[in-house]
Design a protein around this nucleic acid. Structure first.
Length: 417
RNA sequence: GUGGGAGUAGCUCAGUCGGUAGAGCAUCGGACUGUGGCUCCGAUGGUCGCGGGUUCGAACCCCGUCUCUCACCCCA
């Protein structure tokens, strides 16, 4: 037997209904914020990710699905979508016309990692980006939209962890300060954290080692190293978030894995996801577009891990979404009723009613049992006696009550119930 | 890439000391049913993840490998 490729999975009904509902809500909320959809290729030049995500990051270093195509070009299945959006922005001159471009995307991403809970080699992200807007008000707007979306899914009690990583200039000084500080405590650090200290001291802030966490608590804080402009940006954002009533907490240790972030970075974590508890992450990337050879363009965005989001969805939303909706089962009571049932099904569908017809006509028992098993809540029974009288029996599968309805008023009756 | 746990029917699992594989559910057929989650009878379904080794004989022991799973690294 041929199985799905390691780290990939099939999404089956009724689970796909849940995914569709989540995506429908995302599209609705994003549209209400005047975001438009962009679809970029799954396959991009390897260079795109090396230059944007960062050569020293693990994503580029060991997690990319990279191969050489028949023309000898190195191509990569996108590990994230922001770089592709920025590339398209430059390639198509979307800066023309001025103002900010507000874009969102929904689609699969690929990272060659060892799968575990909440982590797959093919995973889906729902993300949004604003290009060409440097003001902290845009940061607040993006976070506001994010919370709107989560609220509509029924999430409560989530808050965003917020920090500023400044710009290249002040970050250099901060990294040196960190390096100096941690070097004094290296004797109490494990191999992992010592390696991080060598390669990227910022990452030590993310340690899971309790002993090192205590050291981290006393470490210099990025916020104390921000240049005047970055500090002002950060302060103004907090004022705007407070005014908008958006819940956040300052997380001075929050650093993110992609090299392109500047100033604002944020992350939302959720319980129930095991060790991979980051539900979404994002931030500002004011250098990304110009790094790609485009005009100097500020940007900010976020990416939500859709697989993880669906994993921790509030049960009420999940149950509602998984239902079969208003589809009615049409049950011919006898084989001789099949033709009439098919005709009735056609008429109902023409009237906009979804009909699940089981044309076999194996009797009411089997028909009703099957309908309930498929998650339907209403059945229309059609038999010889009804056909003679020009009626059908409409049965509520949950309450097991039923009533006789003239065929001519059936569509109307079903829409009303 | 590293470590732990697990792979037996579509699903959940049993399988003794190594002796050629079982249950429940599901599916299909039948009985009974113009009103469903019953009941009864019967049937289908397994290269025991895959490959090698030990053995007269392997689902069981050994080695390798693949996949799943959890964790590390890192991230959504």
């Amino acid at each position: 037997m041929i199985a799905s490729v390691k780290g990939t999975r099939d999404l089956l009904p009724p689970e796909t209904r849940v995914w569709n509902r989540v995506e429908a809500v995302a599209r609705e909320v994003f549209a209400l914020h005047a975001f438009d959809e962009i679809r970029t290729p799954v396959l991009e030049s390897t260079d795109l990710f090396v230059r944007t995500v960062g050569e020293s990051t693990d994503i580029v270093h060991k997690e990319m699905y990279t191969f050489t195509d028949r023309g000898g070009r190195s191509v990569t299945l996108r590990p994230e979508n922001t770089a592709g959006v920025a590339r398209a922005y430059v390639e198509h001159g979307l800066a023309q016309g001025g103002g900010a471009r507000k874009l969102y995307y929904i689609g699969p991403q690929f990272r060659y990692e060892r799968p575990q809970k909440g982590r797959y080699r093919e995973f889906r992200q729902i993300g949004a980006e604003v290009l060409g807007a440097a003001d902290p008000a845009t940061d607040a707007e993006v976070l506001g939209m994010l919370f709107d979306f989560l609220a509509r899914l029924g999430f409560t009690g989530l808050s965003v962890a917020l920090n500023s990583v400044g710009t290249d200039v002040c970050r250099g000084a901060y990294v040196e300060a960190l390096r100096a500080y941690f070097s004094n405590h290296a004797d109490r650090m494990g191999d992992d954290d010592r390696r991080r200290l060598e390669q990227n001291p910022l990452r030590v802030l993310d340690t899971k080692d309790p002993a090192v966490k205590a050291i981290v608590d006393e470490a210099p804080r990025m916020l104390d190293f921000l240049d005047a402009e970055s500090a002002a940006h950060h302060e103004e954002l907090l004022v705007l978030l407070d005014a908008a009533g958006i819940p956040y907490r300052i997380e001075p240790r929050l650093v993110r894995g992609l090299d392109y972030y500047t100033r604002t970075v944020f992350e939302v974590t959720a319980g129930g996801l095991g060790a991979q508890d980051a539900l979404l992450g994002g931030g500002r990337y004011d250098r990304l577009v110009s790094d790609l050879g485009g005009p100097k363009t500020a940007g900010i965005g976020f990416a939500i891990g859709e697989d993880r989001l669906v994993d921790v969805l509030p049960p009420a939303f999940r149950d509602e979404a998984a239902r079969a909706g208003s589809t009615v089962a049409l049950v011919p009571l006898d084989r001789s009723d099949r033709a009439a049932a098919m005709e009735l099904a056609r008429a109902l569908r023409a009237a906009g009613i979804a009909v699940d017809l089981d044309p076999a006509g194996k009797g009411p028992g089997a028909g009703l049992k099957g309908a309930e098993r498929r998650g339907l809540s209403v059945a229309v029974l059609l038999g010889g006696r009804e056909r003679e009288a020009g009626t059908v029996v409409v049965k509520n599968l949950a309450s097991r009550t039923q009533e006789t309805v003239p065929v001519g008023r059936l569509a109307e009756f079903l829409k009303g119930s």
